[in-house]
Write a protein that binds this DNA or RNA. Structure first.
Lengths: 191, 191
DNA sequence: TCGTCGGGAGAACGGGCGTTCTCTCGCGGT
DNA sequence: ACCGCGAGAGAACGCCCGTTCTCCCGACGA
């Protein structure tokens, strides 16, 4: 065996992640992933029985990575209010990554959501997870209506993601942070 | 001549609009548009020299339609503050259309933005136009910083569009409207 | 009436893609 | 040393798609 199964999987997933995210899921052929990963097609199909399965794994991995990065930023803050603002700092640092091209779930949903129920479902789950995280933060900060504040914050976040992707600027993150601060003034008890 | 050039063009554009929007640009073949429009392939290629040209025309048409629908809602309101809220009422009525599947520009950008500069450019122009419209409304409402208010409103709008598309619910429009009201409380001079 | 022009229907072409198959080779066990 | 399993490389297959071509017909001017 040339390479260990686990490392082969990691190589394939890394290559798929980079290519799918950069060019979109449909524009990337299995051959490109074969070339980029250095894993033979035969093995690739042993690890992932179809392109759809690979797409699923790609989205799953993105979800994990995204949650981890978000948690790192949020955990670094101590004050509940600061933790909410840290979400937008996280967005800003994400937007300034040179390969930033929007949210993988929004992009995949736009490509395949109407045609692949699985992709649509994964996008919903990802966004639901984010919403839950925001709701927890809002509750911890003592919001009178944490669900409402969470909804407002998620709108700002999603808006910032797509606006930043299309405009190519990271400014929407700071604008969203501004707006979040204003909304918190109204939704949180005075300190 | 079986059908007049103008009506043939309209039939093709209507078919392309429906199919591209519903299934995504890349999932729809020229053959499907030929069948749906009833216009022969030969004529189709006389009217639009390539699929790319047809995609461009599709996006252009979407832009026009969208601006028109927005303007109808905004113009129906009289108070400057009401005009801004009318934007979110427009979003709500859009989201409840049975074929709603998010913003055609965001979806196309996710599919082709990285690979087609023309699509990326059209998406930027569309969003810039929306931003300008919001900035005008914010200025008319007497915002201290109309650019900032416009930026906050566009984030709420874009967030509502993608959240609604993925969740399949129109609720984000009302949540965004709520948030917009709160932000206006702070950004506009007391009445 | 005849020829020609333009359009409709759909076959054809060239290329790409997802998936599978073939061939070959190196390695481990006896 | 030999056998056979599994892996790598890439050809092959079947299908789809964008684009062009062919063939046929109906309309219209001389």
């Amino acid at each position: 065996m040339a390479i260990d199964t686990a490392t082969a999987q990691r190589q394939v997933l890394d290559a798929a992640d980079a290519l799918f995210y950069e060019r979109g899921v449909q524009s990337v052929g299995m051959d490109a992933i074969r070339t980029a990963s250095g894993v033979s097609l035969k093995r690739l199909y042993q690890l992932f029985p179809s392109k759809d399965a690979l797409i699923e794994a790609y989205l799953h991995q993105r979800d994990q990575q995204w949650k981890t990065m978000l948690a790192e930023h949020v955990d670094a803050a101590t004050e509940p209010r600061e933790k909410i603002l840290a979400v937008f700092d996280f967005l800003h640092s994400w937007f300034t990554q040179k390969d930033f091209r929007g949210c993988a779930f929004i992009n995949s949903f736009g490509e395949l959501g109407a045609v692949s129920p699985k992709v649509a479902e994964l996008a919903q789950e990802h966004k639901a997870g984010f919403r839950q995280a925001l709701a927890d933060l809002a509750a911890a900060a003592g919001a009178a209506d944490p669900q409402q504040l969470a909804d407002h914050l998620i709108l700002l976040s999603e808006g910032a993601i797509t606006t930043s992707a299309i405009s190519g600027s990271a400014a929407p993150a700071t604008r969203a942070r501004e707006a979040a601060e204003l909304l918190m003034q109204l939704a949180l008890p005075a300190r």
